[in-house]
Simulated scan of single mutants.
Amino acid sequence: MGCDGGTIPKRHELVKGPRKVEKVDKNAELIAQWYYCTLSQEQLRRPIVACELGRLYNKDAIIEFLLDKSSDKSPVQAASYIKSIKNVTELNLADNPAWNGDKGNTKGDKYDDIQCARFICPVVGLEMNGRHRFCFLRNCGCVFSERALKEIKTEVCHRCGVPFQEEDVIILNGNKEDVEVLKKRMENRRLKSKVGKKSKKCKSAELVSQQDITEDSPGPSEVKTAKGDMNTNFGERKQIVFTKSTANGSSSTSGKVSKVLAGTTKRSIADREEKSEAYKSIFTSHSSAKRSKEESSNWITHTAYYF
C-alpha cells in the first residue's frame, strides 16, 4: 500500500499563505477621476464644473440630470446631493501648452503620453493629472495647485483678484478626510442659506403689513389740511348765509345765526353747557349779544357783518 497509483492533493496543500486581494491600478483610477466625467463617464470637455465635494463633471451632463424628472430615473450617488445648477461651480482652467489633444495620435503610430494633462496651474505650472493636489475657489471658479496657495499666501485670487476665505477653497478629488470636511461645510452652508431665506421672508411680510397700515391711516399733514379745509368752508358758509340774511332784510338775525352754527358745527348741547361764560359770550347766541327791536338800527345801516 505504498500509494503507487499517486494521490490527489488537497486545497490547503496547494495554496500557500493568505489569498491576495486584487489591487486597483492607480493610473487607471487617476485617469478616471481627472479625465472623465463622474456622472456620464464621458471625457471631460469645456464647460467643466465641480461640485461642493470636489468632483468633476461636464456641465451638459449635470443639466440633463437635473432636467430628467422621470420616475424611472436611476439613483446616482455621485450627484444625489446636487439639487440645482447653483450647487456646482464652473471652473476657470488654464490650458497646458504641451498638450496636443487627440489629433496627435490619429494613426496609432505615436506614443500617447497619458500623464500629460490638458490643464495646468497658472501660478506654479504643475500639471493637473492627479499626481499633485489641486483646488478651486467657489467665488470665482479659478483652479490652482495647493502648493501655489501655500507658497503665496494671500486672501485674493491670484488670477482674477476676487477675495476669498478658507471655507471657499475646495480640494479637487480629495481623499476621504477631505470629503468629510467638505460635507460638513456644505451642510452648514445650506443651513445658513435656509435660515437667511426664512428671515428675509419674515422681514418682507412685516414691511408689507407696515405699508398697508400707513396707507390706511392718514398722516399728520393730511389731518391738518383736512382741518384747515373744514375751517375755511365753515367761514365761507357763515359769510354767505349772513349776506343772504341781510339782503332779505330780516330782523331776526340771532335765530338764523344759531341755525347756521347748528348746521355747520357738530357740537352737542352738553358740550356747550360745559363751556365757561366767557367762551359763550363770543357767540351771537349768547344773551349778552341779543338786542331788542328798539336798539336795532334801520335796515339801511345793515352790513354783511351786522349781527
Rank of each mutant, 00 (worst) to 15 (best):
E155C: 10
T214C: 06
K110V: 12
S209E: 11
G196F: 01
W34A: 04
N175F: 01
I114T: 12
Q43F: 10
A304D: 09
E277D: 08
L207W: 08
C3K: 11
E206N: 09
D60Q: 10
L67M: 14
I170C: 03
D102S: 14
K198M: 04
M230Q: 05
C3I: 05
K197Y: 03
D178E: 11
S71M: 08
D113V: 10
R46I: 03
A247F: 12
I300V: 14
K184P: 00
D271E: 13
L53D: 00
D168M: 06
L261Y: 06
D229F: 03
N129Y: 09
S84P: 00
L137H: 05
L149G: 02
I48E: 01
K23W: 05
S288H: 02
V15I: 12
K293H: 10
N105Q: 09
A148I: 05
L56E: 03
A94Y: 07
E177M: 09
S40G: 04
L56V: 09
L261R: 04
V88F: 01
A94C: 15
F119E: 08
R118I: 02
E146G: 05
E155Y: 06
E294L: 06
V241F: 06
A117M: 03
G125A: 01
N129C: 11
G235M: 14
S292D: 04
Q210M: 11
D178P: 02
A289R: 10
A94V: 08
N27H: 14
D212E: 11
K227S: 08
P218E: 02
K203Y: 13
F65A: 10
R291W: 03
T303G: 12
C142R: 02
R272C: 11
